[in-house]
C-alpha cells in the first residue's frame, strides 16, 4: 500500500503525515497537486494546512484543483481517502463528505488538545478502537465548526456516519467539551461509503510515543 499525500500550495502537515504513516508501517509519498495521482496510489490523504491561504473559505480553492477530479474518481473506485483538518475542509467543499466546516464559535484560531469519543468502530479508520473509547488528539483550526442541516445530520446519525464526537475525558459529550461549537459535537464523518472520511483533529500529530502519544495511530492504520 502506497498512500499519496496531496500537497496543495499552503499545505503544511504533508510531511508530518508521511512520517506518521510510515510509523504505522504504511508507505507514503508526497504528490504535488499539479501532478497526476500516481497509478500505484492505493490510498490518499488530504493533509492539513492553509491551502490557497484559506481564500474565500477554507478548502474552497483546493476542492476545485484538477487533482481533485482524480481523487474523486479513485474514491469512487474504492481507494481509501482521509481528509485531515484543512483536508477535511477540502473534502467537504469537494462534496466527498457531507456538511461544512466553518468559523469556530469563538471566532478564533484554536490550537489545543481535545478528547474524542469513538462513535462507530466499524470503519477502516476506527476499527483499532472500541465504540465509546475516548482518545486524545490535537486540534489546530479557525474553521472547524461542523455545520449541516438538521435533516441531513439526522440521516448521518441514523446511518452511523459519525466517526468521532468531541467529549470530556470521561467520554461525556457536553457543550463545555465542544471546542468549536460543532453541531452535535461532530469532529469527523464518513462519505457515502466509509472508506472516505474527514476529521478536524490531527491523528498524525499523535502517532509517536516520544512526542505526545499514539492515540492517532489507529486512524492512520486504516490504510494498512
Amino acid at each position: 500500500m502506497t498512500v499519496a499525500v496531496i500537497q496543495f500550495g499552503g499545505s503544511n502537515c504533508d510531511r508530518d503525515t508521511v512520517q506518521a504513516l510510515e510509523s504505522v508501517g504504511v508507505a507514503a509519498e508526497l504528490v504535488w497537486h499539479e501532478d497526476d495521482l500516481p497509478a500505484e496510489a492505493e490510498g490518499i490523504v488530504l493533509p492539513g494546512g492553509f491551502s490557497y491561504g484559506d481564500f474565500l473559505r477554507a478548502g474552497a480553492m483546493a476542492a476545485h484543483s484538477p487533482i481533485m477530479d482524480e481523487v474523486r474518481a479513485a474514491a469512487d473506485e474504492g481507494t481509501p481517502v482521509l481528509g485531515i483538518c484543512n483536508g477535511a475542509q477540502v473534502g467537504c467543499e469537494a462534496s466527498l463528505t457531507p456538511g461544512a466546516f466553518t468559523t469556530n464559535e469563538s471566532a478564533r484560531f484554536q490550537c489545543e488538545h481535545v478528547h474524542l469519543r469513538v462513535e462507530n468502530s466499524e470503519t477502516p479508520w476506527t476499527t483499532q478502537y472500541e465504540e465509546g473509547e475516548v482518545i486524545e488528539l490535537p486540534i489546530a483550526h479557525g474553521e472547524g465548526r461542523f455545520e449541516i442541516s438538521d435533516d441531513r445530520l439526522d440521516a448521518l446519525e441514523a446511518d452511523d456516519r459519525i466517526l468521532f464526537r468531541y467529549c470530556d475525558a470521561e467520554g461525556n459529550v457536553t457543550p463545555e467539551a465542544n471546542p468549536n461549537g460543532s453541531k452535535h459535537a461532530v469532529a469527523g464523518v464518513t462519505g457515502e461509503s466509509d472508506h472516505v472520511a474527514v476529521m478536524m483533529p490531527h491523528p498524525e500529530r499523535m502517532t509517536l510515543a516520544d512526542i505526545g502519544g499514539t492515540d492517532g495511530s489507529g486512524v492512520l492504520s486504516g490504510f494498512a
Binding site: L56, H64, E93, P98, A100, E147, I148, S149
Partner: peptide
C-alpha cells in the same frame, strides 16, 4: 453554486 457559495451553509 459551484464556488462562490457553499450551498450547505
Amino acid at each position: 453554486e459551484r464556488l462562490l457559495a457553499n450551498p450547505t451553509i
